[in-house]
């Protein structure tokens, strides 16, 4: 790459200074849906209510000042042993290529109804990420086109990354020799 190209590349991806542009804009737009926000060790985090996840994500993706084009990661945490309520939390990590900033969005979900809207309409990668979370935690994604297990096999019972699934409960599918 020539030095000019490199300069261009850096011009495309400017460094964001210490401000938190994402949080301010979002608070204005969705005052009710934002449950909490903090910035621990430099990671901006917001907690949002499950039913307004889809509009918030759309807003984050499409507002030019924010433009989080990439869904870097999607996972969940089971807070059973930490005694938090509600029990589950789905965690989204967003990244903006244009502005080079990151945001973590969390959605708390109760134990009796672990369901949240699917983001497959916004990002293609959400398909597999959501299948994995369903497989590992048993969290349902409303509107997902094909919610099957991803890593485990169909015969497998239970969701292994839940804290109440014992670490070495095996479910072999071929007969074991002795």
């Amino acid at each position: 790459m020539s030095p000019e190209q490199q300069n261009n590349a850096q011009a495309q991806l400017p460094q964001v200074d210490g401000e938190r542009p994402a949080l301010g804009r979002l608070h204005q737009q969705f005052p009710e849906a934002i449950l909490a926000s903090h910035s621990y060790r430099g990671d901006d985090t917001i907690s949002v209510a499950g039913d307004s996840l889809l509009p918030i994500m759309q807003f984050l993706r499409e507002t030019p000042e924010l433009s989080f084009e990439t869904l870097m990661d999607l996972t969940a945490v089971d807070y059973l042993k930490m005694g938090k309520s509600p029990r589950f939390e789905v965690v989204y990590h967003l990244y903006s290529l244009t502005h080079n900033h990151r945001l973590r969005v969390k959605v708390p979900l109760p134990e009796d109804l672990p369901e949240v809207d699917s983001l497959t309409s916004l990002w293609k990668i959400a398909d597999w990420y959501e299948r994995e979370v369903w497989d590992m935690f048993g969290i349902k994604f409303r509107g997902h086109p094909d919610l099957r297990r991803l890593l485990m096999y169909e015969e497998f019972e239970g969701h292994p990354l839940r804290k109440d699934y014992p670490k070495s409960r095996r479910q072999p599918i071929v007969a074991q020799r002795t």
């Binding site: 292994p160 699934y165 670490k167 070495s168 095996r170």
Partner: peptide, 15 residues
């Protein structure tokens, strides 16, 4: 790896 997903030695499956 002693967990729910790994076979504990392939001699439990084949000789």
């Amino acid at each position: 790896y002693d967990n729910y997903s790994t076979v504990q030695g392939i001699d439990t499956v084949i000789p």
